[in-house]
Amino acid sequence: MQQSPRDRLQAPSAAALFGTDMYGRDLFSRVLHGGQVSLVVGLSVAALSTVFGLTIGLVSGFMRRIDAVIMRLMDALMSIPSILLAIALVALWGSSVPNVILALTIPEIPRVVRLVRSVVLMLRDQLYVQAAIACGTSTPRILVRHILPNTIPPLIVQATYICAQAVIFEAYLSFVGAGTPPEIPSWGNIMAEGRMFFFQSVGIILYPGAFLALTVFAINTFGDGLRDSLDPRMQRRV
């Protein structure tokens, strides 16, 4: 992590596995450190948007009266391209890791809400739910005991995709200067900072880029596998 200007943009060697960046810092340790930040962003965005989306989706799907209002709001939120919205939010809030997480979470919420709501709408007419209503079970209890468990499998799959996407979007945000602050290395901002030096030292973009791509690839493949095993109808597809 130490800056040493004399060793800047060195080729990979035994001392610096991936070479050094424009300040002479070891690229390998920066990439490893960046992975930590990128993964924290990805996982937090997935967790937060799932929790918020699940809550709103359950309520919206089960209570007709507020459903229309919530869905119109969600439609509007969805018609703003997600990266643009995130960029605007970080630009306004200032760049920090929590702000990036929040800014990436907000555009994902409506997508989770739609998914949860569609499951709820399908289940609401099922006999066992009708039976529960007839027995006088309270609405929150029906939601939590009878409907919530059925939304979990598709949600887990969705969450893995959100996580993968958030890792990429964090890189986009950093790249346009609305991401994690420069003193905290993430895969995105290592590449963003290094882009001026791309032709002197290709590795400064390629190494973090390759790590990011492999990570996202792995999460996506994991998601595909989960979907195949959780949803028998979708087997042997995509």
């Binding site: 993968a164 990429i168 890189a171 986009y172 790249f175 995105g188 590449m191 882009r195 973009i205 390629l206 880029g209 990011l212 791509a213 492999l214 996202v216 690839f217 996506n220």
Partner: peptide
């Protein structure tokens, strides 16, 4: 193609 950031 899905996993590599556009700028890379």
């Amino acid at each position: 193609g899905f996993s590599v950031p556009v700028f890379v």
